[in-house]
């Protein structure tokens, strides 16, 4: 998939991280365009979480640049980069209502504080959580909590949203629902999202493009279809395709068995 230069939202150039004498990220470069959903897929320890934390500024890279809209943000503080992040378990503020959770950071923001109420209301409305606005996080289902976490991030109008395996904590049924919701929200807001996961199906379902990582390197960066049809190397074939095929096989076996009976 070709990316026109004007479309590029986030650009990573030669990102390198050395930690305890080990190369965690190996001078990787990639671009993400406006409104794109990029899944970063890899096993634990492949460097995907480090990449996410460096992108938002919670950790510092040893070398390399991060550009948003062509502007270098690598030296800026996390809250000045124009990015938002959503973690597993969401880390909502437990003592605040849904509305307060969304409004809180806005109220502390110099530019947004005068419209904080209006923005919070609008975002909750758009995300379909307005009817729950007075509830506390512990009164919400896992899926509703995810929506509040997304609303809280969206309200600050970030240019790029990073998601650190937000679905993994949910049970199987909710996971299916939330995957769909996440995709819908992303389309509705035309958000640029980078989604970290170790689950192949999640990545294939959600992503416009998938970046397969291993040991701090990018093994392949392409659309799900291209990766499935033309895996770049043995690693991609083993880690991504073999797993998907296995799933497919057991699914077929299962349906075959049902048909047989």
């Amino acid at each position: 998939m070709e990316i026109l230069k004007d479309d590029i939202k986030l650009s990573v150039r030669g990102l390198y991280k050395k930690y305890d004498g080990k190369d965690v990220l190996n001078r990787i470069s990639f671009d993400v365009k406006q409104g794109e959903f990029l899944s970063v897929l890899g096993p634990s320890g492949c460097g995907k979480t480090t990449l996410l934390r460096i992108l938002i500024g919670l950790e510092t890279q040893t070398d390399g640049e991060i550009l948003i809209d062509g502007k270098d943000v690598s030296k800026l503080k996390p809250n000045e980069r124009g990015m938002g992040i959503i973690f597993q378990n969401y880390a909502l503020f437990p003592n605040m209502t849904v509305f307060e959770n969304v409004e809180y950071a806005l109220k502390l923001n110099k530019e947004l504080k005068f419209q904080s109420k209006a923005i919070a209301e609008r975002t909750l409305e758009q995300i379909g959580m307005m009817e729950h606005k007075d509830k506390k996080p512990n009164q919400l289902s896992g899926g509703q909590q995810q929506r509040v976490a997304i609303a809280r991030t969206l309200a600050l109008n970030p240019k790029v949203i990073l998601l650190d395996e937000p679905i993994s904590a949910l049970d199987v049924t909710n996971r299916e629902i939330m995957k769909k919701e996440l995709k819908d929200i992303q389309k509705k807001f035309n958000s640029t999202m980078i989604f970290i996961t170790h689950e192949q199906e999640e990545a294939f379902y959600l992503a416009d493009r998938i970046m397969v990582m291993s040991e701090g390197n990018i093994e392949q960066l392409d659309t799900p279809k291209n990766i499935y049809d033309n895996p770049a190397n043995k690693y991609v074939e083993d880690f991504v395709l073999a797993h998907l095929d296995q799933k497919l096989e057991s699914l077929l076996k299962c349906t075959g068995k049902i048909a047989h009976e």
């Binding site: 996390p78 000045e80 992040i85 973690f87 969401y90 880390a91 503020f93 600050l156 650190d164």
Partner: peptide, 24 residues
């Protein structure tokens, strides 16, 4: 006992440690 990502969230949203202490 609080979520371990609480500080990461507040840092990325521009909420200071003292505000988190007092408000959360």
């Amino acid at each position: 006992k609080f979520n371990k990502n609480m500080e990461d969230i507040s840092e990325t949203m521009g909420i200071s440690k003292m505000r988190m202490l007092l408000d959360v």
